[in-house]
Design a protein around this nucleic acid. Structure first.
Lengths: 371, 371
DNA sequence: ACCTCGGCCGTAAACGTTAACGAAGGTATA
DNA sequence: TATACCTTCGTTAACGTTTACGGCCGAGGT
């Protein structure tokens, strides 16, 4: 193990003081450009890496990060937030403040929350960009201002965001397709529902599903995707129509959380036991559907892990100045009737002590936008 | 945010010095028992938590941990080791030295490696107890000596080990059962192979499989488990026998890595296309079997994550003195033909830069026992 | 000539913990 | 009584970085 280079080593090698070295390395005012260049060169040749413990110990400033997510209509975002604060207190550096900002519906209050975070002068933002294009301007402004933004669950392209944490959508779709093929013995017509083909994640799931199905099960047929635009009634009506127009339908893959309306439509159309359901995510209303075998399998997007990883990436960037990876893709979990209980147990077990340390719910740290 | 209590706060509250407080909290010699009690009481009431950055900064000692695992016959343990060193360098505290000790076969050289680690005076051990009962004496000795031991993949009960990191075996078995039931439309006879019913993990997988199958698919029948005792030829011969005695066999669940001999036996018995295979783990030889649909699905035990979590638990204990959780159980991943490529890509993508920072292979840090 | 004002840089005090050193007081041995 | 020694505890210098403060010097203004 070679001795680690410290500020003093650089200073002595150049015959200057540690204060100057520090200012040069951090682009602070009060250093001539020639000195700055010499310091940065010497830091490179000596392989200088800052001692984070010393930095943390001496620094008075506390990192503030804003977490902008959907209000917990389902348990998904509660889990994401739980994962974030879980990781925050594991990374023991305690000078971290997390401000939760939520908005009630997709696209509603989202820009306001982002603007508020910027105005509040936070050091970093974790966000769920439900309408990436409308957030684009704000995110660009943040990245121009040097404020890192990490996206969870959905990417926001061309925004200068630091990183994105999400499920591997192609793999999700492909897994669903392969399962569907097996369950149906390689024959039959299947459908896919999604929110909108304009959302990258959803169209990727469809793409993965369709390509895997046609590749591995050539005798099967996949219909055009059904778009519900996040409106429950639309979802139900279009599903009814689907079942009426396609009495031969053997399976359906719901790529979003909106599986309940589809299930109800199937129930009302009396085709529930003739159609294999593969859904997405895991929430209370879905549990009895899995138990009753109405849903054969659901693809769990691991919200807690997504939250943990998102915070971790942001923290490493804030504290080390470099980003471990700009795209974290997780493998989804498969939940079926057989292992359902293990996931339910895991959720409640892990979230109970979580609440105790004071995460979301109604703490004053939680700000709701247009709630 | 309440002001954090530090050593000086305790000292001033009691009218003593920080040196004494430090000695009292660490059970060091040179403190009267009455003072020690008063300090520990005051630390509790003030809610004292040590500042890890300051501790690390001032401490000269480097943590040494020994990683005792099977030599990389398959990629499983290579991945575990990669996960460990990945996590080690993410936890940036750089005063950590990892010594890898390996043994070539199950139970062989295992005790010697453990003894060597103890003799070397390491501060903690991560181990795969392939023969828990034979290691029991050594592990007890370690825990008596205050040296924490974390088990990976397999637990070693009654040994005083600090923690265990493993896959949820019951969930694995249940998932396999539910899949099998779906694939076979709820009918048929299925078999399970394992190494030995004496190994807790294996019998739990069998138990989960059998109970889920009988609970959800009452028309199916599961045979008595087939024990291969980790010997390839035994595995092949017993499989041949199984296929001969049970021509009606419709599916088989291989709970261990030893799926290749079973597959070969099925091939030689010409029943490969009549039997649904669900296997365990993911290694090169299994890839073509999955692609050719010989294996319907494999349950991936996430070795890299196991390594990461094991190191993390050990590190938190060494540095904080308390253990986050004594039992870390992970949900297994399901790999099928559809999402196979994503897992392969993930493995190579993540392991390539891993090698670069110098983990296992042939570094001088790597010591082989009876290799 | 004096004063001021920037730009550039050195100095030193924090941050909280660890650990080496030494002082004070008491007890045992010569 | 002097010496040695032990227990108990205080003192203080590290660890590497940050940051407030102050000093020096040349350019510019009166």
């Amino acid at each position: 193990m070679i001795k680690k280079a410290k500020l003093l080593d650089i200073a002595e090698a150049l015959g200057i003081s540690t204060g100057t070295v520090h200012r040069a390395l951090h682009n602070h005012a009060g250093v001539s450009s020639v000195t700055k260049a010499r310091v940065q060169q010497m830091a490179k040749t000596l392989g200088y890496r800052p001692n984070l413990a010393a930095r943390y110990l001496s620094s008075k400033r506390t990192l503030r990060v804003s977490v902008n997510t959907l209000k917990g209509t389902t348990s998904f975002w509660d889990e994401v937030r739980a994962g974030i604060s879980e990781e925050a207190r594991a990374l023991v550096m305690e000078n971290i403040e997390i401000e939760y900002r939520t908005y009630p519906r997709l696209g509603e209050g989202e820009e306001e929350a982002f603007e508020a975070a910027l105005k509040a002068g936070v050091d970093g933002i974790i966000t769920f960009p439900s309408r990436p294009q409308s957030l684009q301007a704000w995110m660009r402004r943040a990245s121009r201002g040097g404020i890192p933004v990490v996206c969870v669950a959905t990417d926001a392209p061309n925004t200068g965001r630091l990183a994105v944490v999400s499920i591997d959508t192609l793999a999700s779709g492909s897994l669903a397709a392969d399962l569907m093929g097996h369950f149906l013995s390689g024959e039959g017509t299947v459908a896919v529902t999604l929110s909108s083909v304009a959302i990258t994640e959803h169209s990727e799931k469809y793409k993965g599903f369709a390509s895997t199905l046609s590749g591995l099960y050539p005798k099967m047929k996949v219909l055009e995707p059904l778009e519900d635009h996040d409106i429950e009634t639309v979802c139900y009506e279009k599903s009814r129509e689907l079942f009426k127009n396609h009495p031969e339908l053997a399976g359906i893959y719901v790529t979003t959380e909106a599986s309940i309306p589809v299930l109800n439509a199937a129930r009302d159309a009396h085709v529930l036991d003739k159609v294999i359901f593969i859904t997405t995510d895991l929430f209370p209303a879905l549990v009895p559907e899995i138990r009753s075998q109405a849903v054969a399998a659901t693809i769990y997007q691991r919200p807690r892990t997504q939250g943990r990883r998102a915070f971790r990436v942001l923290h490493e960037f804030l504290v080390e100045g470099e980003c471990p990876s700009f795209q974290v893709t997780l493998a989804p979990h498969l939940v079926m009737r057989g292992n359902l209980d293990f996931f339910l147990q895991r959720q409640t077990l892990e979230s109970t002590p979580q609440r105790a340390v004071g995460v979301p719910s109604d703490s004053p740290e939680m700000i709701d936008y247009f709630g």
